[in-house]
């Protein structure tokens, strides 16, 4: 499923990023890398943006970018 479909406060693991090169690089720099755990925590009141906890930091992404991140439910190990 895509990151956009994940309900708030559910931890998931990234399995793929389908963005174009520039955005992909930026996302990877911020911690959105295949194998990492992310958790959506906030939803913008004006719709269209959500914030995630990733690698100890909070990053907000637009819906158009959330759609391109493929995730699956977290495995047994909890990595922060």
């Amino acid at each position: 499923m895509t990151l956009q479909e994940v309900p708030l406060l559910t931890q998931v693991e990234i399995i793929a990023l389908h963005h174009e090169a520039h955005m992909k690089r930026r996302l990877m720099d911020l911690g959105f890398v295949v194998g990492n755990i992310v958790e959506p925590i906030l939803s913008s009141p004006s719709k269209g943006m959500r914030a995630y906890i990733v690698k100890g930091g909070k990053i907000a992404l637009r819906a158009s970018d959330e759609k391109n991140i493929e995730v699956r439910e977290k495995g047994e190990f909890r990595a922060v």
Partner: peptide, 11 residues
């Protein structure tokens, strides 16, 4: 069209 961008929410 609106572009992609990321926003960091610092502590």
């Amino acid at each position: 069209i609106p572009s992609s961008f990321s926003l960091e929410l610092p502590p």
